[in-house]
């Protein structure tokens, strides 16, 4: 056990010596790996955010009902009574056209547009919350309300979220494919850097072999080297993703505020971060393993 620990301790020390002997090369490889991994890791982070948003929204059984522009307010009130009597609805909120206009004028981005208008172009509207959130139930309600007198349009608010969810499912597959490709690239990068290391240390390897070093002794430091490089790349990728989300969030927060939302992008979860780093370390080890297995045979 003690001897085993000592062997690994020496391998780690030897790997550290190899790293510091070629600091720049190793730093550049780690950065290249980091940038390559940041793409799928960042994509995954954005996707998680959007998926969360879409799922939350698509679960809201909300309908928007817009009246024809020329509808009188008495007609709207009559419809309101009728809707409030509908047992399938949990809540009915009436948004008079004047209130809607005032809200628009209060929005920074739209204030100027609406200030320039002479007439209020907005119709009366109702925001409805159904008891049953199943898409089928919402479709039935929308179909019924659409033919009521004075109704211009009924919109299921969560429809866009459902469509977004479907798009995100496709995007997720794309991200995983990208991740797989860049994972292979990571293996290739370590394969190559380790090959260069093996070649520059050819003489040392030859001599240690002649003096009785086992293959394991010679290979171990390279494995640690590959894993360390992958790990460094993984950590660099996490740093890049973190910085990107931070800087995106400045814009996102401002945009969400105009919708009265406190939405912002969340960072990769701790477990996801650990998984990215561990996977990168494993792929680095794999690249080193393949490289050493092939190139040591030539010595």
């Amino acid at each position: 056990m003690n001897a085993w620990l000592r062997q690994h301790g020496r391998a780690i020390a030897s790997a550290a010596a190899k790293i510091s002997a070629q600091r720049t090369t190793n730093a550049v490889s780690a950065l290249v790996i980091g940038i390559a991994l940041a793409l799928p890791a960042g994509g995954y982070a954005l996707l998680s955010n959007l998926t969360g948003l879409a799922q939350r929204t698509s679960l809201e059984p909300q309908l928007s009902l817009y009246m024809l522009p020329e509808t009188k307010s008495s007609e709207s009130e009559a419809l309101g009574k009728r809707l409030r009597a509908d047992p399938r609805l949990a809540a009915v909120r009436f948004v008079p056209r004047d209130e809607a206009l005032a809200a628009m004028r209060g929005t920074e981005a739209l204030a100027e547009v609406f200030a320039a208008l002479e007439r209020n172009p907005l119709p009366d509207a109702f925001v409805l919350r159904a008891l049953d959130s199943a898409p089928g139930a919402l479709d039935v309600l929308a179909g019924e309300y659409r033919v009521l007198p004075g109704v211009a349009q009924v919109q299921i608010d969560s429809d866009w979220a459902r469509r977004l969810e479907a798009v995100l499912r496709i995007a997720r597959t794309g991200i995983f494919m990208l991740g797989a490709l860049l994972g292979i690239a990571l293996v290739a990068v370590t394969f190559n850097t380790i090959r260069l290391q093996v070649l520059t240390q050819r003489q040392e390897i030859e001599v240690t072999k002649l003096l009785g070093a086992t293959d394991g002794f010679i290979r171990r430091p390279f494995f640690y080297l590959g894993a360390a490089q992958g790990l460094a790349g993984g950590v660099a990728a996490l740093g890049i993703v973190w910085l990107s989300i931070e800087s995106l969030n400045q814009g996102v927060r401002a945009l969400a505020a105009t919708y009265g939302s406190a939405f912002q992008l969340t960072h990769l979860a701790g477990a996801d971060g650990v998984a990215v780093a561990a996977l990168a370390a494993f792929l680095g080890w794999l690249g080193a393993f393949l490289s050493v297995s092939i190139h040591l045979r030539e010595i």
Partner: peptide, 16 residues
């Protein structure tokens, strides 16, 4: 076997 060769060499002092 190739794996046994290092242990043979450790018992030899070699001056090349």
């Amino acid at each position: 076997r190739p794996a046994a060769i290092p242990f043979l060499r450790r018992n030899l002092g070699l001056v090349f």
